[in-house]
């Protein structure tokens, strides 16, 4: 079984992309961070990942970091699509967004997000968060094959 080598960041704001990349660098996350900038791209990318590669393996991401407010397709649409897709159903999806509004939180969990995180303002807090995330979801958490 091929290990899940990548993580997918769905984020349209280039600032946030850079900051998260910086945090990943700081934490030295071993996974490759793939970045897409809108919902459609996210769906297209994930759909591609579900296909079997040359070795008959699927290279599913270890985790999806999903912003909610996205162009073309919203984060909720992406989440819904992931959970409706049998091949991706169990991929951990962590919502990472600016808004901590109750409605968004509730809806995200209703659509079976694994976690809901609000992007911290402080850079060090973001680094801490990324460290915790990678440790938990990539290292500790077990997933069905």
């Amino acid at each position: 079984m091929k290990s899940r080598v990548s993580m997918l960041l769905v984020e349209d704001n280039p600032d946030d992309v850079d900051l998260i990349k910086h945090a990943f660098r700081k934490v030295q996350v071993p996974h490759q961070l793939e970045v897409v900038n809108d919902g459609e791209q996210a769906i297209a990318y994930l759909a591609g990942q579900t296909a079997l590669d040359n070795e008959g393996q699927r290279s599913l991401p270890a985790m999806v970091l999903l912003d909610l407010k996205l162009p073309r397709q919203s984060g909720f649409a992406v989440l819904q699509w992931i959970r409706a897709n049998p091949g991706l159903r169990h991929v951990p999806v962590v919502v990472l967004t600016s808004s901590g509004q109750d409605e968004d939180v509730r809806r995200a969990y209703e659509l079976c997000a694994n976690s809901y995180l609000v992007k911290p303002i402080r850079c060090d807090a973001l680094i801490d968060m990324v460290r915790t995330l990678s440790r938990y979801w990539a290292d500790l958490n077990l997933l069905p094959t």
Partner: peptide, 8 residues
Amino acid sequence: APLRAMEG
């Protein structure tokens, strides 16, 4: 978002 960018 811009705040995070400034701070970050």
